[in-house]
Design a binder for these strands. Sequence first.
DNA 1: AGAGGGGCTGAGAGCGCTTCCAGTTCCAGC
DNA 2: GCTGGAACTGGAAGCGCTCTCAGCCCCTCT
Lengths: 337, 337
Amino acid sequence: MARTLDDLAALSGVSRATVSRVINGGPVSEETRRRVLEVLERTGYRPNRAARTLASGRSGVVGVVMHIDPQHLFRDPYFAGLLTGMSNALAEKAVGMMLWLGDRTKDEILDQIQLRGLLDGVIVTAHWREDPLVDSLLDSSMPTVLIGHRRSHPEASYVDVDDVQAADTITTHLIEIGRRRIGHITGIPGSVAGADRLEGYKRAMARAKLPTEGLVVEGEFNRASGAAGAAQLIEAGVDAIFCANDATAAGALETIKAHGLRVPEDIALAGYDDLDFAAQLDPPLTTIRQGVQDQGAAAARTLFQLLEDPDGGPRRVLLPTELVIRRSTVGGVRRFD
Amino acid sequence: MARTLDDLAALSGVSRATVSRVINGGPVSEETRRRVLEVLERTGYRPNRAARTLASGRSGVVGVVMHIDPQHLFRDPYFAGLLTGMSNALAEKAVGMMLWLGDRTKDEILDQIQLRGLLDGVIVTAHWREDPLVDSLLDSSMPTVLIGHRRSHPEASYVDVDDVQAADTITTHLIEIGRRRIGHITGIPGSVAGADRLEGYKRAMARAKLPTEGLVVEGEFNRASGAAGAAQLIEAGVDAIFCANDATAAGALETIKAHGLRVPEDIALAGYDDLDFAAQLDPPLTTIRQGVQDQGAAAARTLFQLLEDPDGGPRRVLLPTELVIRRSTVGGVRRFD
DNA sequence: AGAGGGGCTGAGAGCGCTTCCAGTTCCAGC
DNA sequence: GCTGGAACTGGAAGCGCTCTCAGCCCCTCT
């Protein structure tokens, strides 16, 4: 069984260099190529990746770090979409993916990632406003693409959606349908998405000269905190609630109904994410759609660019969002489902 | 910046071999070790993984193939648990994990996996009775651990639970509480778990000399097929239903209630998996608990064994399951929650 | 005092590949 | 017939590490 390039070279009567050229698409005469390919085929030869990496300086593998509690990671379809998008984009270029999940500490992960000659670059989720792991990665020489945080670091390349703008848009939608006391149930404090969406909400409210005092309740991106938050906001006498994500909105919806109030007649409700279930709620939920798979794919492609032209400066990609209007805000009159 | 062992050797006044010994824990005098460690620390040196792999023949990275549609992958907490278990066990030994998800075709994945010098071994989910990818892997020289299929291949190492036995146990439980017309809603045809659970059900029924004709309905491991299947079985006049998993049981429960029937008085209901929501159903669901994270961890450890002693023959691990009795079968009388 | 042995250390030979550089061959052009 | 260049090929130098082997030093034992 042929194991090395030298074996193949001997078998096909050319030099090792030529076999390498055939494999990697270098300039080789048609006839030689054919002969070598035949041997390649016949022997079922597989190149040794480590040797190739060592000689060429490229590994063809990128790291993906999802620095998030695994429980959360798998409950949230957001990460599934991200991973799927990346996985597809990487596979297109036959690039491998090494994955670090969850709750490992910063140093453990860093140690592994920074082993040189293993990874060409890394994609890392940056969902927390403070994350030492992300900072270290940016300071290292490892080409890095962030998902979700427009880090102020001058060298940071990232892929993100404009959460502030999207939250502004959906809040403005609530204002345009005539609501005045619009409450907001936030995401997890410390999360970038939570902070950005709150900011967008406040911006829209300020522009419309509407009050927000007593109308902002802290949530946790989940059903339970949505249910609890809605109770507080009902108390505060709101006529609309913008929730930091769909799960929160689902919880809020339960509470509103339990109070005998109608959506949207008494309280208009809006979420964020447009997960599958948002359209299944009763009434279907007005929300913001962000192409999660696209984000994953974009991150992969951004990393490719970074690797191809390392001196081209940081790459910054802002993906569009879409306001999806359903009956939880414009109920009864027009139907969007 | 010190980049190679030679740089470090020069800086610390010893040979490259000695630096390597310090890093890898070889025999070195205390004083030399201290001196080298100091330099190591000061320079922030990171070994080159590719070079190390090439020289040593071990990469410290294992592949994980989840040959399953990504949509399904993330909906199902089973895979989340598996991945978490593996991820933890691998991290313990500072072994990296390369992941192949989903719907890639067999050859694409194989090409990448079989690159020598990249992976020390692979863990692959084997949930289908027929899977050419698994067959190829077993035929290759790559150390491989299967999760979930006791493949007949003589060299196959695997980690599995005894689905047949567990299904037998839970069916027997239904028999012991006095049920006689016990229906079964199967898993996806072609899946190992589905087939094994069906077999266990039939075995228990046969032993009790109970009929199964017309009492087996095809399902798909999901809520919808559970709801549909239950409708058929109610028609057939069952007094108990064993569902191939908890999601199926949840669907069945809805249908049973919609028919105005009581659980367990009219129809006793049992699931499989003991996912979080099983205990939250009304009534809480009797089911089979399988330690999913344990399975993942066991797979990783089994692979380690295989790598340490490749000639030790195949490793076969069968993990225990547990019958969890709740009110969906013994309602009203005793409480287990 | 000399032999023997144990503990460290350094030299050097790879691991299997890529890639630069220097041919070699073959033609077109003059 | 000779030259210049294009197209292809082979030689060889690494890539950065591991690991065997031999050598050195020093200590113990006879």
